[in-house]
Design a protein around this nucleic acid. Structure first.
Lengths: 342, 342
DNA sequence: CTGAAAGCGCTTACAG
DNA sequence: CTGAAAGCGCTTACAG
C-alpha cells in the first residue's frame, strides 16, 4: 500500500470534536480527568478519523493479537494457517502469544496486559477457544481493543463477538452417519462436559438418535474431561468395558477419537470391524491417523479468516451484523467407520 | 517490565556520536546525504543506546518476525510453541507470517518486505526451514534486521545465523537402533534429496551401517521429494516392492514414516511385525500414530527458544559466538520397531 | 473538567 | 556532507 494518505493528527480530531488537542491527548492516554461525554465524543472522532496515534499509526500493517492457551497442536496450526493467510491478503500482521493453561492473571495484570497490547500497536485481539476472563474483557474494552473469540468453550457473553461452527448439526451428522450404517448401540465421548461446543455436539448426537427411535442410555454418554488424546485413551474404557458395549462411538474431537481407537486396539477390538469411531475437527490428526478418521470437519482455517476480517472491521469502528458467526460443519467419511459386524 | 528506563533520545545519541540531531535523524531515516563513516558511527551508537527509534522504541516489547513457508502442521506448531513460550519469558512479542510455498518475490518486493518489517517495528526475523533468497537476505541486512534460520534446508551461507539439530548423529542413532534389533536389510527414505538436513541424516545412517559391516545397496536409498505424508506413501513402494524387501526403513521425517506405514498396511505388511519403521522429528504425529512411532527427536521447541534468544541478542547488536548452533537429537523408542520376525 | 502555554523529540528545507 | 533553525505533533503541569 504505497502512497499512504496523510496521517491524521490530534489537531484534526480536536477541531472536529470541538475540543483542544490537550483533551484529545488525554483521552488517547487514558487519563482520568476527562468528562465521560467528552471522552465518548473524542473516541468516536478518533475512530472516524482512523486515528492510530503515535503507536499503531506508524505501522504499515495493523496488527492483530492472536492468543492461545495451553498446547499448540494440529488444531491450533489450522487456525494459525487461516488467520495468517487471510492477514497476508488483507495487509494485516498477526502477533501470536501462547499463555500457560493455568495462567490466570490478576486484575492488575489484566489491565497491564491490555495496556501493553495497545502500546505495542495491536488493533484487536483474537482469542482461541477460551473467552478470557471478565477482567481481561473489561480491560480490552477500556483500551478500545475489540475481541473476537474463535470456537468459544463457554457460552460467550453477548458483548463478545465469536466465530464458531455448527456443532449441533455436526453432532447430528456424525450420529446419523452411524445410524445409517446400521449401528444401534452408539456411545458418545465428550471433552469438557461444560464446554458449549461439547454440549451442542452432544445435543445434536442425541437428536439424531432420538429421531431414529434409538435409546440414549446414560451409560453411553461420558465426558473425558478435555479434548486431548490422553483423555480419549483414559475415558474410552467407560464405554469399551460396558457389559453391552457400543458398536460405535462418536468422540467430540479427533484427538479423543484417536485415544479411543488406541484403547480399543489395546483390548483387541479392531476399528472399524468391531468398533466404528467418528471424530470431530478434521485436523491433520484425522488425515494421518491409521485408519484415517471419519470425522466432522470444522472449517478451522475459514474460521480463522473470518475472525481476522471481523477483528479488522471492529478495529476501524464498523458495526458487525451478528455477534456470533457459525460456519458449516461437514461430515468427512474415511476408514474408521463401517457397518457393524453383527 | 514496569518502571521502564528512560527512553533514549536522538539528542543523547547525537552528542555521544559528536554530530547534530539532524544527522542522526537522517541516518535513522535512511537518507542518502550522510557520509558512510558518519553513518557507521551513528548506527553503532544507536545500537549502543538501544535506540529503537520512533517505531520500535514505542513498543513495550520488541517484536520478532517468525516466518514460515507452505503448510503449518505439527512440525510448525512445535516451533511456534517454543518461540512464543520463550518470547513470553523474555518480554518479547512474535509476529507470525506464512508465505505460500511458491511465492518467490521479486527484487522490489524483497526490499519492500524488509522496509515494511522495519516500519512495523520488527527487530529481527526468524525463518523456518528455508533460508530466504539472497535478495531477501540482502534487504534485511540493509535494514539492519538480523536473521536466524531454524532447521535450514540448504547449506546456510556463513553470514546467516542458524539453529539446527544433530542430524548426522540422529541418522546414525536411528540406524544403530535397527541394527541392534537384528535388522540387516535396512532402507532409507529421504525427503528433499538436496536438503542439507536430509543428507546429514542419510550420511549418519550410512555411517552406522558401514560401522556394523552392513552393505548399503543403492536400491535401498531413495528420496521421496519432500517430507510430507503423501511423499512417504508414494515413495514407499520404491522400497516395499523390491524383490528383496528391507525389513526396516528409516524415514527422514515422521510424516514420511506414517506414509510408509500406511503403504505397508495397504500391502498387508504389518508394522512392526513384518517391517520396522523409524521416523524423524518426534512431533505430535509420532506420539499419536498407531503404532506410536519410534523416531529421532528433534528438540523443535528448544530450537525455537534458542532462535528467538539469538535473534534478540543480534537485535541489540551483540556478537554471537557461533553462526550455527546444533541441539542434540535423541532416539525415542516406541512401537513401530521390533526385531525382525524371521 | 478544560485548555493555554511551555516544552520535548523529531524532521526537513536550506545555507554553507 | 553537515548542522542551525523553523516547525510539527504530541504531552503535561498548571491556572481557572
Amino acid at each position: 500500500m504505497p502512497g499512504t494518505a496523510r496521517r491524521p493528527t490530534l489537531a484534526a480530531v480536536a477541531s472536529a470534536a470541538g475540543v483542544s488537542v490537550a483533551t484529545v491527548s488525554k483521552v488517547l492516554n487514558g487519563r482520568e480527568d476527562v468528562a465521560p461525554g467528552t471522552r465518548a465524543r473524542v473516541q468516536e472522532l478518533l475512530r472516524a478519523h482512523d486515528y492510530g496515534g503515535r503507536v499503531s499509526g506508524l505501522h504499515r500493517h495493523p496488527t492483530i493479537e492472536l492468543t492461545f492457551r495451553g498446547r499448540i497442536g494440529s488444531y491450533s496450526a489450522e487456525i494459525i494457517q487461516g488467520v495468517a493467510g487471510a492477514a497476508a491478503d488483507l495487509g494485516a500482521a498477526v502477533a501470536i502469544s501462547v499463555k500457560a493453561r493455568d495462567d490466570h492473571s490478576s486484575h492488575l495484570t489484566a489491565t497491564q496486559w491490555a495496556r501493553d497490547l495497545a502500546a505495542d500497536g495491536r488493533r484487536a485481539v483474537i482469542a482461541v477457544t477460551d473467552e478470557l476472563g471478565p477482567r481481561e474483557i473489561t480491560a480490552l474494552a477500556r483500551m478500545q481493543l475489540p475481541l473476537v473469540v474463535i470456537d468459544p468453550m463457554t457460552m460467550p457473553s453477548p458483548k463478545v463477538v465469536s466465530v464458531g461452527s455448527t456443532n449441533f448439526r455436526g453432532g447430528r451428522a456424525a450420529a446419523m452417519h452411524l445410524v445409517e450404517l446400521g449401528h444401534r448401540r452408539i456411545g458418545f465421548l465428550g471433552g469438557t462436559a461444560a464446554a458449549e461446543c461439547n454440549q451442542a455436539r452432544l445435543q445434536g448426537f442425541k437428536a439424531a438418535l432420538e429421531a431414529a427411535g434409538l435409546p440414549v442410555p446414560e451409560e453411553y454418554v461420558h465426558a473425558a474431561g478435555d479434548f486431548m488424546y490422553e483423555n480419549g485413551f483414559e475415558g474410552a474404557p467407560l464405554l469399551l468395558d460396558l457389559p453391552s458395549r457400543p458398536t460405535a462411538i462418536f468422540a467430540a474431537s479427533d484427538e479423543l477419537a484417536r485415544g479411543v481407537i488406541e484403547a480399543a486396539r489395546a483390548r483387541g477390538i479392531s476399528v472399524p470391524r468391531d468398533l466404528s469411531v467418528v471424530g470431530f475437527d478434521d485436523t491433520e490428526i484425522a488425515r494421518l491417523a491409521s485408519p484415517p478418521l471419519t470425522t466432522v470437519r470444522q472449517p478451522l482455517q475459514d474460521m480463522g479468516a473470518v475472525a481476522i476480517r471481523t477483528a479488522l472491521r471492529l478495529a476501524v469502528g464498523e458495526r458487525i451484523d451478528s455477534d456470533h458467526v457459525e460456519l458449516a460443519t461437514e461430515l468427512v467419511v474415511r476408514d474408521s467407520t463401517s457397518a457393524p459386524s453383527t
